[in-house]
Every structure is written in C-alpha cells, then in structure tokens.
C-alpha cells in the first residue's frame, strides 16, 4: 500500500465523517467521497454510507493494492456550515486546485472549528424562532414575549442537559418538559393569553428539521437503509418531545 493511497483514504474518510456528523444527506457523502478518490487517480471506487458509518474502497493499480476502510460515526449534530465548507474543499480538490496535504489541512481546520455562532446567539435565535411561530400558529402579538422566553429556556435546557445525559431522546424529553412548564408558568403569571400557541412556540426550536428533510431526500435517492433510520430518528425525537409536553400538561394544567 503506497503512502499516497493511505493519505487519500484518510482525507476522504475525514471529509465523509465531518459531512455525515453535521447533517449532510447520504447521497452527498457517497458522491463526494467517490469523486475525491477518482480525482486522486484511483480506480474501482466504491462507497457505502449509512446513518452511522462510512465504508470506502478503491484500487491503487488495476488488480493490485486493494484498499478498504471504514469509520464509525457516533455523533449526529447539526451544523450545515461545516457541510458547506467540506463541499467546497472537495470541489477544489476534485478540480485539482488543492493538493492532498492542503486538503487534509483544510479538513482538520474545519473539524477542529467550533460552531460559527456563540451559544448565546443560538439561544436568542431559538427564542426568536419560537415566538415567530407562536404568532404564525394563531397567537397574538402580546404572546410573542412569553413565547420568546419559553423557547429560550427550552433551547438552553436542551444544550445544558445534553452535556450530562448520553441518551439524546431523554434530554429532548426533559427540554420539552422544562420549556412547556415555563410556558405554562408565564401564562399563570398573567404574561400571555393563548397558552396552546405559547407552548407550541416553546417547542419549535426542538423540532428535528435536519433529520426529517434528510430522511425524505435519502429515501428518494434510493438510500433506503439510511432513509429509514433517519426517519426513525426524527420520529423518536418528535415522540419524546410529545411525551415531555404531555407530562408537563398533565401535571401543571
């Protein structure tokens, strides 16, 4: 096995790992990896990706030097900016503007980078999103304020609890519980009129938008295994949110 083949394999798998972790569709990961390996001059390139792992194999020379490796992807987060940046690196690598070393350096930078917004901006954005949707679902203008704080609290609770719990569905349940409980508390204190809309607003930041959209896209492009597992992930998230809200409604209302 040549040194170059080993290097290209590492670069490709790193690119795939970043994309899959931060919310790219399965077909995009497979296509990117196959293109990059072909651009590096290897033949018989095959890539197989599911929601939790990537397999990549290619030949160094015709009939000789077969290589095959896999990476396991444990975390599934959402940071579409990283997906876009890896996409850009692969585009430049495929068109020959980047060498293997440069591509590796760029990918490591992307891998090490934190999310592009500070966490408090994300919480505020969650508040804005939640209050906006509470209005769109039929709340009044006065309800924007409690919905903002309730959505802020549920986003904050999600991020904080996820630092302690390994099971992500449990932390989503807890965040939904805390968010809707604070929404009920605001209405009981006289802040806000439409309790249903405020609760919905507090839950909107928890909605699994990325897995849901990717599940549809995966199923359509024929990645049935990945599509089903992503769909189940989105379904479980929705169900745990629903149970969290149901719990707080049956306790506090």
């Amino acid at each position: 096995m040549g040194a170059k083949a080993d290097k290209v394999m590492d670069v490709c798998l790193r690119a795939g790992e970043i994309m899959l972790t931060y919310g790219a569709e399965t077909y995009r990961v497979e296509e990117t990896l196959e293109r990059m390996a072909r651009a590096a001059g290897f033949t018989n390139v095959h890539c197989f990706t599911t929601t939790t792992g990537i397999f990549l194999s290619f030949e160094e020379r015709k009939g000789r030097g077969d290589l095959m490796q896999m990476v396991r992807v444990d975390d599934r987060m959402q940071d579409l900016n990283k997906v876009t940046e890896v996409n850009q690196v692969s585009r430049e690598f495929t068109s020959g503007m980047l060498t293997v070393q440069e591509a590796e350096r760029r990918l490591e930078e992307i891998y090490e980078a934190k999310i592009q917004y500070p966490i408090w901006v994300i919480h505020i954005a969650a508040g804005v999103a939640g209050s906006g949707f509470s209005y769109l679902f039929g709340g009044g203008l006065f309800d924007l304020i409690p919905a903002f704080f309730a959505a802020f609290i549920s986003s904050f609770a999600l991020v904080e609890i996820e630092g302690y719990l390994k099971v992500r569905f449990a932390s989503e349940l807890a965040a939904a519980f805390i968010g809707s409980a604070s929404a009920i508390a605001f209405v009981m204190l006289g802040l806000g009129n439409n309790i249903d809309q405020i609760i919905i607003g507090s839950l909107m930041p928890l909605v699994p938008g990325v897995p849901l959209t990717n599940a549809v896209r995966d199923l359509l492009s024929g990645d049935l295994l990945a599509g089903m597992s992503r769909g189940v992930e989105a379904l479980l998230t929705s169900l745990s949110i629903a149970s969290g809200v149901a719990l707080s409604i049956s306790i506090f209302l």
Partner: peptide, 22 residues
C-alpha cells in the same frame, strides 16, 4: 406582518441549524 414575522423566525432557525452566513 405574517411574512415579516416568518422571515425573522426563519432567520432564527437558520442560526439554530448554523447555515452559512452568506
């Protein structure tokens, strides 16, 4: 008014999903 509110709510979601700034 609803369209304006949708615009800002979706901006919020864009930050949550961390879409590229441009």
């Amino acid at each position: 008014l609803e369209v304006v509110i949708t615009f800002f709510a979706i901006l919020g979601f864009g930050v949550i999903f961390s879409v590229p700034k441009r």
